[in-house]
């Protein structure tokens, strides 16, 4: 396998961090410590991990309401993420964004976005900046979105723009089979969303989104194309969310136990562990060491968040504008 030892460890660390962050976040949500709705991405660890493994802080990603995995894979800190979900002043966005709006511009993370499809043109715009400045080789745009967003017009507009302007973009469609409760087989006009790429003059690749190595390889090619100035690529990553659409969803109301079991057997973490130990690329001890470190990180993240202050009342009015000499309070 053509992948460095450090990169292998990073893949596992990142996937396990996403898994345990989502599980821990859900526990905290059910304890009432989250201040709002959360959308877990456990099961879908491979796409963000395999793609972001090729990116640096100078590359930009756009994300979705199910964005914790994208954040973690792009290098955001889990304590600040947990604090954001708990609405704290120390959160990634000062407690004003919440689970669906975590961003870190210093890490090239343009923000989770809760209007389905709305972040897609932002990644195209980031790629336009790179092209404008002549830095495509070191700064590209990756747009993460789901099968639900594949029906939004703005995706199609963004694909057309990226293609006609030959921008360094990777369209990463995480097809987890469901838009809320609506199955892709009902709402999407084609079996493979990637087949639509042809109509926009770009390669479209169907990838096993439960296998981080498959994602890593496909993303490597797409990102190399972008950095070489060859334009956009569309990746369709067939994946599955282990939980429901949001924390309180009951997915068995719209999908079967057999289906869930089928995908749980293809758990991307389990298959990673099996493969690297069988091929003697990593030891079971090494894997456990990574898991133990993450367990401690999660305990620390929860403790940090719970012990953090709430935002000041003035935060209600701050940062509406950069310059806003005369804020308008709510009328009383």
């Amino acid at each position: 396998m053509d992948i460095s030892k450090e990169k292998l460890e990073w893949l596992y660390t990142t996937m396990y961090r996403i898994r345990r962050f989502e599980e821990t976040m859900l526990e905290q949500t059910f304890k009432g410590n989250a201040m709002g709705v959360t959308h877990p991405s456990d099961g879908q660890e491979a796409p963000p991990t395999g793609i972001c493994a090729h990116l640096t802080d100078k590359d930009w990603i756009g994300s979705t309401h199910r964005g914790h995995g994208h954040c973690i894979a792009k290098g955001l800190e889990t304590d600040k993420m947990m604090a954001e979900i708990m609405g704290r002043a120390t959160g990634q966005c000062g407690g004003k964004g919440g689970s669906m709006h975590i961003a870190d511009f210093s890490k090239g993370m343009l923000g989770a976005n809760a209007v389905v499809g709305a972040s897609i043109p932002l990644a195209v715009g980031a790629a336009l900046t790179a092209k404008y400045k002549g830095i495509e080789n070191e700064s590209i745009g990756v747009s993460f979105f789901g099968d639900g967003a594949s029906s939004q017009g703005v995706l199609h507009e963004s694909m057309n723009l990226a293609s006609v302007w030959k921008l360094p973009v990777v369209f990463a469609c995480e097809n987890n089979g469901y838009a809320e409760a609506t199955p892709a087989w009902y709402a999407v006009s084609t079996d493979d969303i990637a087949s639509r790429a042809e109509g926009y003059g770009m390669p479209g690749v169907v990838v096993d989104g439960m296998d981080v190595f498959a994602v890593y390889d496909a993303a490597g090619e797409a990102i190399a194309r972008a950095r070489a100035g060859e334009g956009p690529t569309f990746l369709e990553l067939k994946t599955y969310r282990f939980h429901g659409h949001f924390h309180a969803d009951t997915p068995l109301n719209y999908r079967t136990e057999e289906e869930e079991e089928y995908f749980r057997e293809r758990d991307p973490l389990k298959s990673f562990e099996k493969r690297v130990t069988e091929q003697k690329l990593m030891t079971a001890k090494k894997l456990k060491g990574i898991r133990d470190a993450i367990e401690k990180e999660m305990v620390d993240a929860v403790e940090f968040a719970l012990n953090s202050p709430m935002p000041d009342a003035e935060a209600l009015y701050s940062d509406v504008y950069v310059s806003y000499s005369n804020p308008i309070p709510g009328l009383r």
Binding site: F105, L128, L161
Partner: peptide, 21 residues
């Protein structure tokens, strides 16, 4: 010049503004 694609190119302009232009 843009295609007739207001949501797409306004979104791209916002993305460009967020990343330094």
């Amino acid at each position: 010049d843009t295609p007739i694609s207001e949501a797409g190119f306004v979104g791209a302009a916002i993305g460009a503004a967020l990343t330094g232009l």
